[in-house]
């Protein structure tokens, strides 16, 4: 491990940071020790970067290739033999995986809402709604809680005999089986996810607002622009990069950080209605002992993420130009 080499050294360093300074330096000191010192200095940046790069390559990039490769081999008795696209065919035929893909579609449809909520709230905070100093800290708070904690808390709140139904009872609603009704369970879980993470996007939006030219905003107000007009013609174009960033990170968050909620709140049920690709992958690899099938699902998830990222960047940059 190169960490051991990163000890401080009191030897005088050769002068140059560039290759050009090397020749003269060596001639002046002459001795072989200086050459060794020089070599160690030239290697130094590589030694500093190596551990990080090594870990990332070996434990992130290489497994990606390994996984894609693995998805074309078989499980169980056919372990290690090439099976072509059999895993992918099986995936597409599996109703659970289809539900998972359908739920991804629902997430994409809900995405504008999940971006608009923190965007609007950040706008109001930026425009100094009364109490604006407090809100950033308060809204951000659930974002630091583990999905497991959030899920457990909402399990209590959403129980059939729980407090939310108790509240709704006098209003003539319910009792609703929030997590037990296949038609609504997915939306409830997404709602909880948005509750837990909108503070993250809010902070990102506020950081974007810090770069917005306040004079532009004041000019618009002086000209008598209404709030919706200001949002449409000043804030949205001014923050297009931030909005794009939040779109992509929110979608990636929905695809990769809802496992904890699903694990605690629904376990994929009722009737498999709350499956997402990440949950499917975990079930197939850990519970069903189908690692190759899970790898195929992983590859599909990766492709979905790439496509979503690229499409959103395309769409939003075009929208930005039209403005």
């Amino acid at each position: 491990m190169p960490i051991g080499n990163a000890q401080p050294s009191v030897r005088p360093a050769p002068a140059g940071r560039t290759d050009a300074a090397t020749g003269g330096d060596r001639r002046r000191t002459g001795a072989a020790r200086a050459a060794g010192r020089f070599r160690s200095e030239r290697l130094a940046p590589y030694v500093l970067v190596a551990p990080a790069v090594l870990i990332i390559v070996v434990l992130r990039l290489y497994p990606l290739l390994l996984g894609v490769n693995f998805s074309f081999t078989g499980d169980g008795a056919r372990d290690g033999t090439a099976v072509g696209v059999d895993n992918y065919r099986e995936l597409l035929a599996d109703p659970l995986f289809r539900t998972a893909l359908g739920n991804v579609g629902r997430l994409v449809l809900l995405l504008p809402v999940a971006v608009a909520i923190p965007g609007l709230l950040a706008t109001f905070i930026y425009l100094r709604v009364p109490g604006h100093r407090l809100y950033r800290g308060v809204y951000f708070f659930p974002a630091v809680l583990s999905p497991v904690i959030v899920g457990a808390i909402f399990n209590l709140l959403l129980a059939v005999d729980g407090p939310i139904n108790t509240l709704l009872g006098p209003a003539g609603v319910g009792p609703v089986d929030w997590l037990g009704d296949p038609d609504i369970a997915m939306f409830v879980v997404v709602g909880v996810h948005v509750w837990a993470t909108f503070g993250m996007s809010l902070v990102v939006f506020l950081a974007g607002f810090a770069t917005l030219d306040a004079a532009l905003l004041d000019a618009a107000r002086v000209d008598g622009a209404s709030l919706p007009q200001v949002i449409r013609h000043v804030i949205v174009p001014g923050l297009s990069r931030t909005i794009q960033f939040v779109f992509v990170t929110t979608m990636i968050g929905m695809l990769t950080s809802m496992f904890g909620l699903l694990f605690v709140m629904t376990s994929g049920g009722p009737e498999g209605s709350t499956y997402l690709p990440e949950y499917y992958i975990w079930i197939q690899q850990g519970q069903m002992n189908r690692p190759a099938l899970a790898s195929a699902a992983s590859t599909v998830l990766f492709v979905i993420m790439l496509v979503v990222g690229l499409v959103q960047i395309k769409l939003l940059s075009r929208a930005g130009r039209e403005n």
Partner: peptide, 19 residues
């Protein structure tokens, strides 16, 4: 190369990594 790691979520490499 380091940045590329940002775009590989754990879910995608879970199986080979466990192996």
């Amino acid at each position: 190369g380091c940045l590329a790691g940002l775009f590989v979520p754990f879910q995608v490499i879970m199986v080979p990594l466990a192996r």
